[in-house]
Computed example of a mutant assay.
Amino acid sequence: MPGSPASEVPPPTLAVGRFGAVVRQLREGRGWSQERLAGEAELNRSYMGEVERGVVMPSLATAAKLAAALGVPLSRLLQHCEQTEADRAAEAFRWL
């Protein structure tokens, strides 16, 4: 990214894992099963599990389906994936 140190951009493999973890966190926060989220997003349940485990990275179209099913803007879903652990801890602390 222009003007940004390379250290701020997570490596692709880390981004895949973070994406899956964020999707799982949002899903569990709603009390939904993987099957329910898969149904809401019109995806296969086993594929949903692979996404959450970081085995696969969904296409942008699929990520948009997941965001819509979870009721969050796609940009916010992706933003969560870029947050560092320190950022997440600070955000969680603000909600206490």
Score class of each variant (00 low, 15 high):
Pro2Tyr: 00
Gly3Lys: 05
Gly3Ile: 10
Pro5Gln: 07
Pro5Phe: 04
Pro5Asp: 09
Ala6Phe: 06
Ala6Gly: 07
Glu8Ser: 13
Val9His: 00
Pro10Tyr: 03
Pro10Gln: 01
Pro12Thr: 02
Pro12Lys: 00
Thr13Val: 01
Thr13Gln: 14
Thr13Phe: 01
Leu14Gly: 07
Ala15Asp: 11
Ala15Cys: 10
Ala15Leu: 15
Gly17Glu: 07
Gly17Asp: 10
Gly17Val: 00
Arg18Lys: 15
Arg18Asp: 11
Arg18Ile: 11
Phe19Cys: 04
Phe19Gln: 01
Ala21Pro: 10
Ala21Glu: 15
Ala21Gln: 11
Val22Asp: 01
Val22Asn: 03
Val22Leu: 04
Val23Tyr: 11
Gln25Cys: 07
Leu26Arg: 02
Leu26Asn: 04
Leu26Trp: 03
Arg27His: 12
Arg27Asn: 05
Arg27Cys: 03
Glu28Cys: 09
Gly31Pro: 09
Gly31Arg: 10
Trp32Arg: 06
Ser33Pro: 01
Ser33Val: 06
Gln34Val: 02
Gln34Ala: 15
Glu35Ala: 15
Glu35Trp: 07
Arg36Ile: 03
Ala38Asp: 06
Gly39Phe: 02
Gly39Cys: 08
Gly39Lys: 02
Glu42Cys: 14
Glu42His: 13
Glu42Asp: 13
Asn44Tyr: 06
Asn44Arg: 07
Asn44Ile: 06
Arg45Pro: 15
Arg45Ala: 15
Ser46Cys: 08
Tyr47Pro: 14
Tyr47Phe: 15
Tyr47Val: 08
Tyr47Leu: 14
Met48Glu: 06
Met48Gln: 13
Met48Cys: 06
Met48Tyr: 04
Gly49Ile: 02
Val51Glu: 06
Glu52Arg: 02
Arg53Leu: 09
Gly54Pro: 04
Val55Ile: 14
Val56His: 09
Val56Met: 04
Met57Gly: 10
Pro58His: 01
Ser59Glu: 05
Leu60Trp: 10
Ala61Cys: 02
Ala61Leu: 13
Thr62Tyr: 01
Thr62Lys: 06
Ala63Thr: 01
Ala64Asp: 15
Lys65Tyr: 03
Lys65Gly: 08
Lys65Ser: 14
Lys65Ala: 13
Ala68Gly: 08
Ala68His: 09
Ala68Trp: 05
Ala69Glu: 05
Ala69Asn: 03
Ala69Tyr: 04
Gly71Phe: 13
Gly71Arg: 11
Gly71Trp: 13
Gly71His: 12
Val72Pro: 05
Pro73Arg: 12
Pro73Gly: 10
Pro73His: 04
Leu74Ala: 14
Leu74Ile: 08
Leu78Glu: 08
Gln79Arg: 12
Gln79Gly: 12
His80Met: 14
His80Ile: 13
His80Glu: 15
Cys81Thr: 15
Cys81Met: 08
Cys81Glu: 00
Glu82Phe: 08
Gln83Ala: 15
Gln83Ile: 12
Thr84Phe: 07
Glu85Pro: 08
Ala86Gln: 11
Asp87Gly: 05
Arg88Met: 12
Arg88Asp: 10
Ala90Met: 09
Glu91Cys: 02
Glu91Trp: 00
Glu91Tyr: 00
Phe93Met: 11
Arg94Asp: 13
Arg94Ile: 08
Arg94His: 09
